[in-house]
Design a protein around this nucleic acid. Sequence first.
RNA 1: GUGGAUGUAGCUCAGUUGGCUAGAGCGCGGGAUUGUGGCUCCCGAGGCCGUGGGUUCAAGCCCCAUCAUCCACCCCA
Length: 424
Amino acid sequence: MKFNAPRGTNDILPPDSLKWQYIEQKTHQLFSNYNYQEIRTPIFEYTELFQRGIGEVTDIVEKEMYTFTDKGDRSITLRPEGTASVMRSFMENKIYGQAQPTKFYYLGPMFRYERPQSGRFRQFHQLGVEALGSNDPALDAEIISLGLRLLQDFGLNDLTLHLNSVGCSECRPAYVEKLKNYLLAHRAELCENCQQRIERNPLRVLDCKNEACQEVIAEAPKITENLCSDCADHFSDVKKYLELVEIDYFVNPLLVRGLDYYTNTAFEIKDNALGAQDTVFGGGRYNGLAEEIGGRSLPGIGFALGIERLLLSLEAKDIELPIPAGVDLYITVIGEKAKRKAFKLLDQLRNNGFRTEIDYLGRSVGSQMKSADRMQAEFTIILGEDELNKDSATIRNMKTGTEIEIKLSNLLTEMKQLVDKEDL
RNA sequence: GUGGAUGUAGCUCAGUUGGCUAGAGCGCGGGAUUGUGGCUCCCGAGGCCGUGGGUUCAAGCCCCAUCAUCCACCCCA
């Protein structure tokens, strides 16, 4: 084998591609109900957008970006996430001039240079939503509910929603300081990694998996108890709205999101059947992002859902998506003369909405029937010398094995009656 | 970037202490059924044993390197 797909990339082949189509189609449908509209931004942007938008000290920017210089000597980066681009587009196209809030969704590939493992790839796919221009806690609840509803539509309903508030520029710095002091006091008890994190990013210590660290963390000051009154009110309103629509949540004060721009609400949906990469989707509010990349202040909230992880989650629970299998009709041909007739018939049947297939390898009748069987054809239309002489075709019901002979002139109308087609 | 495991037919995998033309099941093609799928039986096609070097009379097997895949760490979708 001469070539491989680049590391961390995957070909999406049938029948998997049908699952993807199903997911995409459901997404368009549901998001439309919530009145979110699709936005399609470029797959690459100027590197600086992500540096500013995601944050210089995040792992994504520090070591995971696919960055290159183009022929015009510009630094370009394949998008590692969707939010920064959406915000850029919102500002660039002056969408703030329209009635707010603006509710966008997107769907497509993202790129991060990482070692692949279960549920993690270099090219992966996210679908996400962004609601810009409102700080209403009801909108936070809508976003969360939308994500959960989508998962429910795919048959996933026993996942855990982790919810937290990470405060704002008013209250978070004071909390971080408080946390840092606490951690410094317990420095010796922490793992090596966390000792370094105290200075660099103390919030990170909170989700360390090390047992010793967990013990220290259990007694650490909690962000939820250190919110300013605005943030505390916002958080409690989000919870009330979630309760109104009967969404169960688990307040997890240790939930900190990896990207710098988050404020207030933070959430993740985890599936513990997935192994290490168990976050199916995550998101939160990012009231600080707009100023970071473009100027005017603008509240926003959104989530991103990993499609590969969604598929893993479905697989872990043995959920089969209702993807159409096989064909309606298979035309079995005997002889060259019949083949010509059959080819014309094939065209007519397809034009009339029947999924129809024919043999292109000149195989025996037995093999053609076998193919029909493999393709789960409902009926096989058999055309041979006998039928041609009578201007008719033999129709075989592949489930029952019964056969009838009908005139070619009546074939289309007869087949319409025979085939149970919902979309015809 | 670090660590561990694994690379043999399209797929899942056997292959003994190194020893003849490298095997099975499934799948694929043909036939038994001169024009009929599923069950059964027979036959067949299909392998640079991941790649490159080394040891040896002899390497799928041992050694080194390399690439890839999987899993985990870091972090995240």
